[in-house]
Write a protein that binds this DNA or RNA. Structure first.
Lengths: 244, 244
DNA sequence: TGACACACAAAGGTAGTATCTATTTGGTGA
DNA sequence: TCACCAAATAGATACTACCTTTGTGTGTCA
């Protein structure tokens, strides 16, 4: 441990300086592909990856298998590992979403995700109105009240946290497992909207009203009203995106 | 099969009786997990997988790495490979969708997908009205006319094919790569709806009208009208699902 | 010029071994 | 009897060496 680490490169059969080397390599190659540094059609070889990252064949293979399963690459004998065209990527894989948000093509990913939110959240609200548990309905109502309070007080960080909780709770309680899987992405979009100020963000009274309307409609089991109210929340976003 | 292949198990170092052994193992284990045969919390070991499928550790590892990347399992030293709780699965991975549709829990997957369609397609139609190319607009219009003709003629198979092409073209031309990735799933839902008669399916005049309305709105660049018309197409589905 | 054979590169797969770590088990003292 | 520390252990993680399979390219011969 202490001194003998003269050769930190990690090829000294020590299993890797940091744990989970395979993940580090996956991350590195994934980011390179997602960012466009390795454009579609680029060719890699296991040999090359081994050398570049100082790893064994096994780890290089594992990494490529995962990338292949995400449809980021395909591999053919005698040819090597080829980066797929973008059209075929599994763009719903959270890892890929993360990599793309970290790249300088972030904007495309954000607008895709935002449009997805616009599509999904109203239906999720309607689903929640039909299927949420009593506890979930109560929690939504209390979160809407929190939002009002924090918004009026101008506590943006706490407001953001509550906002994320509100939207994620809707996705959870709507009873659609596929919507639930979008939780992390919605949280990411909301966070970035506040932090980076990509969209003008100042809790407008209309938005606060609309959150309360959603909560009330869900509490009352009125699916149509919940859907409409959620549409109102997202209208602001739609306008900011130049849609509508 | 017959006899000569005394050792069919494929461990005779021949690289596997059929090509892509790793895929066969992945498929087998994936299906077992997706179907609930291996419920969350079940524990596997690489050793066990090797034995069960007569493969080497490398292949077993590759398989598990892919399942891990789909969040179907996680693995810990000394414990083994544990099936994740459903909540955490990457339910948007096309492989997983396929496995679930093949299991006897098919219904849950279908209703999730259908609700997703209801959410996404209207927004996709609006996007297409804004961003589709001239060729795409023309093609949509001609597909709507085909649908009218085939529907009136009662040619259900051809109608299905055109219907799939219509909906997929919308997803392609809306300019949102994430929506595009849903293509295969939409096709799957439409196919099953016709084939298995899960939903009453007889091209109703209202549906044919609505398809033409969508095409016309997209051709004319009217996003709001396209969104509304697509809602009408999906209303039939909503009613059949007991939503709304 | 065209068809065929052969060499080669790179993935796919097997086998054996070493290391790391969380759990289990067992033993010791209070 | 119980709490706590030490040793054994199971199983993932990783490395190495080797064999098999299969596209690709290249060169030879008619």
């Amino acid at each position: 441990m202490s001194t003998a680490t003269a050769q930190d490169a990690g090829n000294a059969h020590d299993g890797g300086a940091s744990p989970a080397m395979t993940e580090r390599v996956l991350e590195a190659v994934g980011v390179a592909i997602a960012s466009g540094e390795l454009p579609p059609g680029s060719r890699l070889t296991l040999e090359g990856i081994q050398q570049e990252y100082g790893i064994s064949r096994t780890v290089a293979r594992d990494t490529m298998k995962v990338l292949e399963s995400m449809n980021l690459v395909y591999s053919r004998r005698r040819v090597g590992i080829v980066v797929q065209e973008r059209r075929l990527w599994n763009v719903f894989d959270p890892k890929l979403v993360r990599w793309r948000l970290a790249s300088d093509r972030r904007e495309i990913q954000y607008s895709s995700l935002t449009e997805l939110r616009i599509a999904v959240e109203p239906i999720a609200a309607a689903g929640a109105a039909r299927r949420a548990s009593a506890a979930e309905r109560a929690k939504l109502t209390s979160l809407a009240a929190d939002l009002r309070r924090l918004g009026d007080a101008g506590e943006l960080e706490a407001f953001l946290a509550a906002d994320i909780e509100f939207h994620c709770l809707l996705l959870q309680s709507c009873g659609n497992e596929m919507f639930l899987a979008l939780e992390g992405m919605v949280a990411e979009v909301l966070t970035s909207r506040t932090r980076q100020g990509l969209m003008p963000f100042k809790p407008r009274p209309e938005a606060l009203d609309a959150h309360e309307d959603v909560a009330a409609a869900v509490a009352g089991g009125d699916a149509t009203a919940a859907e409409t109210a959620m549409h109102h929340i997202l209208d602001e976003v739609r306008n900011a995106m130049g849609l509508h």
